[in-house]
Nucleic acid binder design. Structure first.
Lengths: 239, 239
DNA sequence: TCAAAAGTGTTCCTTATACACCCATGT
DNA sequence: ACATGGGTGTATAAGGAACACTTTTGA
């Protein structure tokens, strides 16, 4: 078989369908983590599932994710801002999807709860499934996600926990750039799902933050100072 | 557009070519990390590149990796043993490959140097490229790998370093199940590329190992005890 | 007996933890 | 004034780094 003709003609190779699936993770106030699910139409209609979509011609994976979120969940480009989904894993079991040979590239996208509530009310067929003991609690007593998507959620949560073990809100689950240490700690407790004393937390995070100079007001108790994430260069103790 | 027909007919969606690329990483004795490269034939003939291959019909990614290594590098199934490649990232830039729309799933496979030498001599067009200051030193003064594969190598090394920061030789780069602490430390120093005092290293690793009871003999100096990796259950200090 | 490598004791320092305490605001 | 949450001082403990030291072999 002449080499030149093989390399010139990629169409000789079989090509799988490629899909993206997204675990949109958020943290409602005072609640544990939650994942955005939508009610499917078409195949497996009525079942709750992660938003996903097939890849278009020469489309970037990140773009397919954004489009899927816009179409299936009303999460427009403006709401997503510049957030970029993170690749988790490619699921390649040929039996995974009974419609054919489908590779699915799983993604994680962290989104503040405030952004998600902007679409939750407007659309029916959208819900936030809470994560209880590392298992999703789906609406309608549904036990599990289709197409083995439970594994995507498990990986997403693991990944998120790893990233929140060190740095202050690295995925920006708090909606704003400025926050108090209490807000920050609340978010970390929700993500990590394990205790972390407030004074230890403070001393761990302080070197990674810079004061804005402002303080909160209005609530009970002493006003809290506002911080923002410091430039990574500030991270080592080289001041 | 009727939903049923859309979901029933996956062939309506455009499908990309999907390839796998593998960074086979090893650690020659007394040397830094090295990556297996081969001289391409066909497209970009003569250039050194990571082994890779297009996916076959309904093939698992791990299987495609194994086959690519067997075909391009002579690394047969027996040599690979039960080692399973790890997914690193999907590269999706549509301009990445000028032959067409190609997604590449990058993989990492760690292999003991003893296994790699079994094929290095037998085949021409195979080489080990050393990693010097996180850059590959390729044969023939070639500056970089094609198709943006340098990024694959960078990610592979990062991933490997992360896994070797804690556990004893988690990828089994040492060929054998039993080893001395010196061997183990040598491997970790090569992977991590940073100093680690031998006594600190010993105290860090000992709780993760179990003694075999045997000792080495023949070399200079005091005989060293042989260890094997302990069951993960032994890891926490719950003895 | 000496070089070389294995292995241990001990000190110093950094960092997490826990607890107690002081501070500043709204009611 | 006092309840409430923000913020700090300090003691304790665990773990890493460094250094000196002992142990056991081959030459």
């Amino acid at each position: 078989m002449p080499i030149a003709s093989v390399t010139a003609d990629l169409s000789a190779f079989p090509r799988p369908n490629v899909a993206v699936d997204v675990a949109v993770v958020t943290s409602p106030p005072f609640g544990p983590l939650a994942v955005l699910v939508h009610r499917r139409s078409g195949d497996r209609a009525g079942q709750w599932a992660l938003p996903g979509r097939f890849l278009r011609e020469r489309e970037l994976l990140a773009h397919a994710v954004a489009t899927a979120l816009a179409e299936k969940c009303g999460l427009s480009h403006e709401i997503l801002d510049d957030r970029v989904p993170r690749q988790l894993h490619v699921f390649d079991d040929p039996q995974r999807d009974d419609r054919g040979w489908v590779l699915s590239v799983a993604h994680l996208l962290a989104l503040p709860h405030t952004e998600i509530t902007r679409v939750l009310g407007g659309r029916s067929g959208l819900a936030l499934a809470r994560v209880v003991e590392d298992r999703l609690v789906l609406p309608n007593r549904q036990r599990r996600l289709p197409y083995g998507q439970d594994e995507i959620v498990a990986r997403a949560i693991l990944d998120l926990r790893r990233s929140y073990a060190e740095l202050p809100d690295p995925e920006g689950l708090i909606g704003s750039e400025e926050f108090t240490l209490s807000q920050l700690r609340g978010m970390h407790l929700a993500v990590l799902d394990r205790p972390w004393q407030s004074d230890t937390f403070r001393r761990h995070m302080l070197p990674l933050l810079e004061e804005t100079g402002d303080v909160t007001t209005g609530g009970p108790g002493r006003p809290a100072a506002l911080y923002r994430r410091a430039r990574p260069a500030t991270r080592p103790r080289s001041s």
